[in-house]
Design a protein around this nucleic acid. Structure first.
Lengths: 334, 334
DNA sequence: GTGAAAGCGCTAACAA
DNA sequence: TTGTTAGCGCTTTCAC
């Protein structure tokens, strides 16, 4: 068996209480004994049993995080930022992947809560079907929703203003002269998809632009961008611009346009959303709406910590304004 | 306080032992009592305390995983595959990101071991500097290295044969007539970088190709691909082909070549490694060496389970043969 | 400042 | 088949 605090105490000639006090960094121990305990611990190769500690204290110094799909490159960027923040306060992050499935998402949320995480950060899969999972989780642990949220906000949320973000993209292509603007995004399961769609419609309406242009809703994947491109190529008239619900879709679209000898930005303008790493590596480099990952992460941890202190706080919603990054897919920086 | 097994037992009118037996699915309980316990648990909203259970059993039904950098899209693909496998046996995966830093990696490994994970899956950051972390971890829990390994194999390993993989790429461009072949990859910290470099040199030598072509070693990132491209463009003679250490580098390289009006594959052939999602979306679509993620994951779990049964098994090394995926960056399928 | 002792919630002997 | 009970390793009163 592994060496326990009992062994350390014995070797140091003190009680387990004192050993515990030293090992957890309590003030009220004489330097002499503290030194003895530390020496004994080192000599024996003592390793703290976090499970036992967690059982006793009811805290784990651990935060759980669930993302809809780790393969979508936008999520890893948020995860990295959150992890850096958590590190500052010495907490560990356990990350889980819901694989785009609300059932798996529920399992993961329970698994994390069962392990007594001190808090849960979640990007919900679905605006409607993830709701029950959130409601259940909120009763067990502090929860913060990031990026996406579920209906009626059972928990705090931080994200960018998606509606505004897509608005920026539309305004941009309108300013460049586009009239017939198509929208390619994911079906309206998630709040992101919903808000981005809403933003598109709002600005199109505001400018009195034709509303019979394609609105193609599939998934947030590049393959969907490809099929959407093919679909648009098969129909007349071809749009002046395509605003996409995220970068992956836009990159898929660009690939298909390239193959069909449609020139971007000469024949059609294209915009994305997120500003993932590959956006600037696309051909042509992609104009997109940037999500400020560091800021999202910072706010997320702030909300979580506030909620850990007071569970009964009113639910907070923090919407950060995104910014447009102009690249060559709409004619380049100007 | 949350509802405990004691509350359930009381409500069901049985002992905690019986309640425990029912709740953990033991056979030896009469159906009548089992039903009563389940009903009581549901009525009270009982949730299993995994921490207490873990302390008692010494098992957590949890596997930890550490990747060097979750932002590198190759790792999420492995993570997803591992997660699917683990799900089959009802275990949960806790994922950690080492942020390319061996110190953080050590912290994560300890945090996971402290929480008594039943096993650890790790893609080590460095072939040399991650070694101590591995050695320590191996003493605490079953460990499997995936993709990369550290010197002297303190733990099982499964990955593709990197040397062979790069060999496939070189053979391919040689068959297409390339003589002057450049190599752009990451500096030789990780075993992947080392093996891929070795594979390149071996095949170049075997074919008696010129050995004064560029060998540029930086990082596994697209930015490095860009700078490497610029470096090669500034020198004479320009190579016939560039074999890259991974897809990201190749994609960065393609971007820079495009900007400089170097045509791929007409002016130069380019190959990658990994076959990440964006490889086929690159312009032109990237010829690359595919790592069979599902197979890696399956083998990884098999090794882990074997080691959980017998810690004293001799160290296993499983090298899977990778395959070449030919796309347009070397002239397309043929 | 230090130690004795009571659990945190659960499981697994052991008895009945 | 069921119940009683002794811990898993740790932290934290509560006495001294």
């Amino acid at each position: 068996m592994a060496v326990t605090i009992r062994d350390v105490a014995e070797r140091a000639g003190v009680s387990v209480a004192t050993a515990s006090r030293v090992l957890t960094g309590s003030r009220n121990v004489s330097p002499v004994l503290a030194e003895r305990v530390n020496t004994a611990a080192r000599a024996l190769g003592y390793r703290h049993n976090a499970v036992a500690s967690a059982l006793r204290r009811g805290r784990t110094n651990t935060v759980g995080m669930i993302v809809p799909e780790i393969g979508n490159p936008f999520f890893p960027s948020i995860v990295e930022a959150v992890e850096r923040r958590l590190q500052e306060s010495g907490r560990d992050l356990f990350l889980c992947d819901a694989q785009q499935d609300v059932t798996i998402e529920r399992h993961r949320a329970r698994a994390l809560a069962d392990r007594q995480v001190d808090g849960l950060i979640i990007v919900p899969v679905s605006a409607t079907e993830s709701r029950a999972t959130l409601v259940e989780a909120v009763q067990r642990t502090p929860v913060v929703q990031v990026d996406r949220y579920v209906e009626e906000y059972p928990a705090d949320w931080v994200g960018v203003n998606d509606e505004l973000g897509v608005g920026l993209a539309v305004e941009h292509v309108v300013a460049l002269g586009a009239r017939r603007i198509a929208f390619v995004s994911a079906s309206l399961d998630s709040s992101s998809a919903q808000q981005r769609y809403a933003g598109f419609e709002r600005v199109v309406k505001r400018h009195g632009l034709p509303s019979d242009t394609p609105r193609l809703l599939g998934t947030f994947r590049a393959e969907w961008g490809r099929s959407a491109a093919l679909q648009m190529l098969a129909e007349e008239p071809f749009p002046d611009a395509v605003v996409c619900g995220n970068d992956e879709i836009a990159i898929g679209l660009l690939g298909e346009f390239r193959r069909s000898r449609i020139r971007v930005p000469e024949d059609v303008l294209v915009t994305g959303f997120d500003d993932i790493r590959f956006a600037q590596l696309a051909d042509p480099p992609l104009t997109t709406v940037r999500q400020p990952g560091e800021q999202l992460a910072a706010e997320c941890i702030r909300l979580l910590d506030a909620r850990m202190i007071d569970r009964d706080l009113p639910v907070q919603r923090v919407a950060i304004a995104p910014s447009l990054v102009v690249r060559e897919s709409t004619g380049g920086s100007s």
